[in-house]
């Protein structure tokens, strides 16, 4: 993704410039404020939140809210569940996408184009389309409330985008490499495993980031398919916790911070890479 600044602009009117800055700063404030608000109220007591100190820094830093969120709210367990479900889904989606993309873009056969279009249908189909039959089948098989109940649908829903991104990266790999590998006696699988998979490393990050956000934040399937607390992911856990603590805001704030800040901290360090993943996902489509 090329975002370098190579063009020139005319000098603009200083008054316009000031107005633009005011707009940019106000919008930045509107974006940062909720995050700041969440962080500060996660450390406050109800007296502070409901009293005079609504938006200031906490006078007394109440880390006990985090203890409540972890113990009573089970946020630790939900965090681990989310990590597990997300990681395995990304891995399956990535592996399936790399194999499929290899077959579609680097092996010559008649149906390649059609197969690609078929997978691209998934970009428009809403998740909701499959929820009724999948729910009925899973409940008949007594397969609700497992990690795999979420992992398999999540892998399927991120598959189309993974294939799209993979295709973008795979066509950039020179075909001479395949040829050289074949001459050296590699079959299709050998070429795939030894040449393509290692050279696709940059795609892992892009797909991983995209799939991570899809799975980490997914709420509808998690809410419908998981009813026992042992397998809840963070979004469902937060919903349950907020039902339990309707009047005590601190622990809810702590849960929101636990679910959000790890992502935001990673984003601060990798913002360019993460932004590029989103651009790659949307613009190449």
């Amino acid at each position: 993704m090329q975002l370098e600044e190579r063009y020139t602009l005319k000098k603009s009117n200083p008054a316009v410039k000031v107005l633009v800055y005011i707009l940019l700063v106000i919008w930045a404030f509107i974006n940062i404020f909720p995050i700041y608000f969440m962080f500060t109220f996660s450390l406050k007591s109800n007296e502070e939140i409901f009293g005079e100190n609504v938006v200031g820094l906490p006078r007394e830093w109440l880390f006990s809210n985090y203890v409540s969120a972890m113990n009573t709210g089970n946020m630790g367990l939900y965090f681990v569940n989310s990590v597990l479900v997300t990681t395995v889904s990304i891995f399956i989606s990535l592996a399936a996408a790399m194999m499929a993309t290899y077959a579609i873009t680097r092996i010559k056969w008649k149906g390649a184009n059609f197969t690609n279009s078929f997978f691209m249908l998934g970009l428009t189909i809403p998740l909701q389309a499959s929820i009724v039959p999948v729910y009925v089948i899973l409940s008949k098989l007594h397969w609700l409330n497992h990690y795999s109940t979420l992992i398999i649908p999540y892998s399927a829903f991120t598959l189309s985008m993974s294939i799209l991104i993979c295709t973008g990266f795979m066509v950039d790999i020179p075909y001479d490499l395949d040829e050289a590998a074949r001459i050296d006696g590699c079959g299709l699988w050998g070429t795939f495993g030894r040449i393509i998979v290692p050279l696709l490393k940059p795609a892992y990050a892009t797909i991983g980031i995209y799939a991570f956000l899809q799975c980490w934040n997914e709420f509808m399937f998690a809410n419908v398919f998981i009813s026992d607390s042992a397998h809840r992911t963070l979004p469902v856990g937060i919903k349950a916790l907020s039902g339990a603590y309707t009047t005590d805001w601190g622990p809810i704030g702590a849960a929101l911070v636990i679910a959000t800040f790890p992502t935001l901290i990673v984003y601060i360090f990798l913002c360019r890479k993460i932004q590029d993943s989103f651009i790659a996902g949307a613009v190449k489509g």
Binding site: I32, L213, N217, T263
Partner: peptide
């Protein structure tokens, strides 16, 4: 970077936050 931050936050978290 700042404008893109809300996109990364789970809609459930955003919803809870706005409820407050």
């Amino acid at each position: 970077t700042v404008y893109f931050m809300p996109v990364l936050i789970s809609t459930v978290v955003i919803g809870q936050l706005w409820l407050k």
